[in-house]
Each structure stands twice: as C-alpha cells, then as structure tokens.
Write a protein that binds this DNA or RNA. Structure first.
Lengths: 111, 111
DNA sequence: CATTTATTCAACTATAATGAATAAATCGCG
DNA sequence: CGCGATTTATTCATTATAGTTGAATAAATG
C-alpha cells in the first residue's frame, strides 16, 4: 500500500498558484501563473489532473462560477485551498527550507 | 513522450541531502538526513531508486569507497552532485521561491 | 450552428514506495 | 586456517501514485 500523502512537486505548484490567485483561481489563470513564475511550459490537462487529485484528498475545494463570459464559453470552476491543504503546503515548504537552509551553494536570494 | 526533465519532489530532497553531506554521502546517511530534516519516514529503497534515476540523467555521479568498516559490511557507494545537478537544484528552488514569495499565508519563517 | 472558453477523458510514461533478495566485507570459533 | 554467522550496504521486482499529452466533450453566446 504505497501510501504517500505528500504533495508532489507539481501539486505543490498548483496549490501555491491557487493561493496567490485567490478569487480568480480556475484552470487557465492557474496554468499561466505557474508558467510565468517558473518559466516552464504547462499543459492545461496537467493542471486539471492535479486539481482533481488534490480535491479527492481534500486539499482543495471548488464550485462552479456564473457563466459570465464576454463571448460564449463554458462556466468556470473556481478552486480554493482548504485548511487541510494549507497545512500540507506549509509542511512541504518547511521540509524544503530545512533541507536547503545554510547550504552555501544555494545562498543569495531572499525568502 | 512524457519527457519531464524536472526534478521530482523526492529527487530534490535527495539532491539537497547530498549537497549537505558532502564527503559522506551514501545511502544510509542520505536517508537519515531527509528523515531528520523533514520528519517524514524514508525507506532506503526509495533513496537508491532516486539516486539511480539522477545518475542516469547526469545530475549526480558516484564512486565506490574503500571497504573500511568497523565490523564487516559491504563497501559504500559515495554520491556527489554534478554541475548540471547543481543547476537543476537551483532552478527548482527558484521556481518554488517565486511561487511562494509574498504569500501572507506562508510568511513567518526565515529563508 | 459556428465560435469561444473551459473542462474532462483516456492512454501512457515517470516517479515513488516497499519489502525481500543479494553482495561483500569481518569476526570468531572449531 | 577456513567457513559460517553477522554486519553493513546495495540492488531488484512489484505495485502505487503523480505527471504528461492531445483529443474529445461541454456549455455558453453571437
């Protein structure tokens, strides 16, 4: 029973993008946010897949928005981080910081 | 061709442990380092599997140590991060920092 | 019904977890 | 000695979970 329960790399990125976007967190902006901040190309399908997994684990929740598009277009599904999700993000962050803090090869940038 | 080329979460941890350990980086201490700093349990097999993948991608290199054990015991295989590996770690770190910097929900700790 | 915006799906590859098996060394005892 | 028990370490095989990709579907409006 390979029970993991730890956030994967990409899942963590999605969570962080979500937190940053606040009210406007749905597929496309999430994807863009990650692309802009990490410089890596993101395929939308990956984002949705990660969101699905996170939802199943209770780390994010979602609800459908009104269909207020400028010109057609299906309704958006907005996501937000749950309290449990926030805890997981903090753990993941703390773990990484503990591992890289004080390493001279990585010094230089602010938090 | 799901070519990723990005460090997985656990792979990153292994890299960081490696960097921290310096001369003494082989299976057991790497595992311990991660356990101590992240608080999560690590199975040795996972570490070796990750090291194998990283070696294939040219992010770490290794050589066998002398068999200078106190009381029996097979020779150790020592690992170190390659220049390419260091670059990858920096990228991974920068990506995460960019994503979480300035998020009020995560503020508080030092770098 | 064409177009737009968005989400879901299915198939596949890569990463991670786990426990057992194997290897290589030393010690101690007949 | 020499050979099996013990110690330390790595490798392997299997299964589970995460991540990638591109195409299909859905739902809205002009």
């Amino acid at each position: 029973m390979a029970q993991r329960d730890y956030l994967g790399n990409f899942e963590l990125m999605v969570m962080l993008a979500l937190m940053r976007l606040g009210e406007n967190a749905y597929g496309v902006p999430i994807s863009q946010e990650i692309e802009e901040r990490t410089g890596r190309e993101v395929v939308l399908g990956s984002v949705y897949a990660a969101l699905e997994r996170l939802a199943e684990k209770g780390l994010v929740s979602s609800d459908l928005g009104e269909s207020t598009a400028e010109r057609g277009g299906r309704a958006k599904r907005y996501f937000r981080v749950t309290p449990k999700g926030l805890r997981e993000v903090r753990h993941a962050q703390a773990a990484l910081k503990n591992l890289w803090q004080g390493l001279p090869q990585l010094e230089g940038g602010p938090v």
